[in-house]
Every structure is written in structure tokens, then in C-alpha cells.
């Protein structure tokens, strides 16, 4: 793991020249320290020229950047999201999948459009409730599961859905949480799952759970979850980061129509 050792030594401090600020905390630079000052001239919109003090400061060590796997050695060893999506698509070729927004939907679509996929291009946190409604409504339909493919950030935006799933117990509800411990689609800010176990929460809500770190056990867990009765949750720890794939720019009504047509024909054909 040459990358690992190299990136561990990578300096985290950056220097930046800023205009003098009376309060570094209020300027959002808590922990910064002065390393030098200089005088310089500047003009306000070219109207008034004045002399200011420019301070060169050293920023405190930054928190880990979760957008780049090479900065998080442990995460870099984990599966990539697109690999996990491939496993999910293989495990559920004929069951309804509701895919969360941002990079997850885009990466899934990049693996080949599938009519059984509902690509939710926004509405962060809504995948769980949508899949819950589908699972309740498709109780008698010839599907093994309705699969909500959610991220850790998305699930944290609506943890309620786990309580609701545990209360209503829709037999076909399965949530797969792709947990990269970050809001990867919005720049990689860390989520609570750096030290919070979503499977423990789901278990407490009455869901059957599987916690995975690698692709092979994950594929096995998906097989088990597919056959297991009652609502369930499979969580896979992932490497952070997104793939470079095209945006989904269709009219959402078209995305819905494709998925709805799949549901109708599957129910009619297999019913």
C-alpha cells in the first residue's frame, strides 16, 4: 500500500494570505495562527486606495478529506460504490430498486439503464419512505423484495423510516445502505457513521440486519436478505469518492413512467 504510507505523511497544513481580520474565529478560521504580516495597498472598487495589513496565517490541521480515498487509507481499502451497485443489480434483476440521489443513481445508471430501477435524482432522504410505500403496496405482488438503495447521509436525513418499517413490518422492505461515512455527492463532508452504527439502530427498530465490509460477504448478505422474511437492512462500508459518470438529465416524469411500466407489466405478467 504505497499510496497509504505516502498519503499518511502528507502535510495537512496550508498557508494562506488574508486581509487583516479582528477576529479569526468569526472569520471561520478558528485555530489559525499568525506566521507573518506585511503591508500592502488595495483599492475598494478602484475608488479609494488604502493601505492594509496582510497577515499570513497557518491553518490548523484539516479534518480528513473523505472525497479522496487516498487520504483515508482504511477507506481506500474498502469496496467502491460502483462495485457495490453492480452486486445489488445482479442480486435483484427483477425486483424494484429505488436508488438514492446524486452519484448513487448516476453510477447505477452508468452500469446500464434498467427498467426496475427508480432513479431518484433529488429528494435526499426520501428513498426509504418511497420504498416503504412500495413495499406496503406490493405486498401481494410477485416480487421478493422492494430494495431501497440508500447512502449513510440519506438515511441520516430520515432515520424515521427505520422506526416506521419496524412498526409496520412490510415483508418486502429491504434497505441497502452504502456507507462511505461521508456526504460524497456534496463534497465529502463526514457523516455520523464515522462512529455511529446504522445496523444497531435498525436492529433496535426491529429490522433484520447484515453488516458487511467486503464485497463477497455483501453479495452473500444480499442473497440471504432477499429470501429472509420481514423488513431488513444490509449495510456495506465503502471507500469514499464518486465515479466520473454522466448526469441524469431526463424529465423525472419519464424516469417514473419507465419504472411504473415495469411494475405494471411485472405484476400482470407474473401475477
Amino acid at each position: 500500500m504505497g499510496v497509504k504510507s505516502a498519503t499518511m505523511k502528507r502535510p495537512c497544513q496550508h498557508s494562506r494570505a488574508i486581509a487583516s481580520s479582528p477576529n479569526l474565529i468569526h472569520s471561520g478560521l478558528a485555530g489559525a495562527r499568525d506566521v507573518g504580516t506585511a503591508r500592502a495597498k488595495c483599492s475598494d472598487w478602484g475608488l479609494v486606495e488604502r493601505e492594509i495589513t496582510v497577515r499570513t496565517i497557518a491553518l490548523p490541521p484539516t479534518p480528513p478529506c473523505y472525497t479522496n480515498p487516498t487520504l483515508q487509507p482504511e477507506g481506500a481499502m474498502r469496496p467502491r460504490r460502483i462495485e457495490a451497485l453492480q452486486s445489488i443489480l445482479q442480486a435483484f434483476p427483477e425486483d424494484p430498486l429505488v436508488l438514492t440521489c446524486g452519484a448513487t443513481s448516476r453510477e447505477a445508471a452508468s452500469l446500464g439503464r434498467r427498467d426496475n430501477c427508480l432513479y431518484v435524482v433529488d429528494s435526499m432522504g426520501l428513498v426509504g419512505p418511497i420504498a416503504l410505500g412500495l413495499a406496503l403496496g406490493l405486498q401481494g405482488a410477485p416480487f421478493r423484495k422492494v430494495v431501497a438503495v440508500e447512502g449513510d447521509g440519506g438515511l441520516l436525513m430520515d432515520l424515521n423510516c427505520l422506526a416506521t418499517a419496524g412498526y409496520l413490518k412490510p415483508d418486502k422492505f429491504l434497505m441497502v445502505v452504502l456507507d462511505n461515512e461521508s456526504y460524497a455527492s456534496t463534497g465529502g463532508q463526514p457523516t455520523y457513521t464515522t462512529n455511529l452504527d446504522l445496523t444497531a439502530i435498525a436492529t433496535a427498530c426491529g429490522l433484520r440486519t447484515w453488516a458487511c465490509q467486503e464485497l463477497e460477504p455483501f453479495a452473500q448478505a444480499l442473497q440471504e436478505a432477499r429470501e429472509a422474511p420481514g423488513p431488513g437492512l444490509v449495510r456495506l462500508k465503502l471507500a469514499p469518492g464518486n465515479e466520473r459518470v454522466p448526469y441524469l438529465t431526463e424529465d423525472p416524469a419519464v424516469l417514473r413512467h419507465t419504472f411504473e411500466t415495469f411494475l405494471r407489466s411485472a405484476v400482470a405478467g407474473r401475477g
Binding site: 426520501l126 419512505p129 410505500g133 412500495l134 411494475l263
Partner: peptide, 16 residues
């Protein structure tokens, strides 16, 4: 409320 809205959407898509 947003949970209700999402669930309603899922139910509607399921033909309920």
C-alpha cells in the same frame, strides 16, 4: 410530513 409524502408516492406507484 415528508415521510408521509414519500410513502404516499410509493403506494401510488404500486397502484394503491
Amino acid at each position: 410530513e415528508e415521510e408521509a409524502v414519500g410513502m404516499a408516492a410509493g403506494l401510488e406507484l404500486a397502484g394503491v
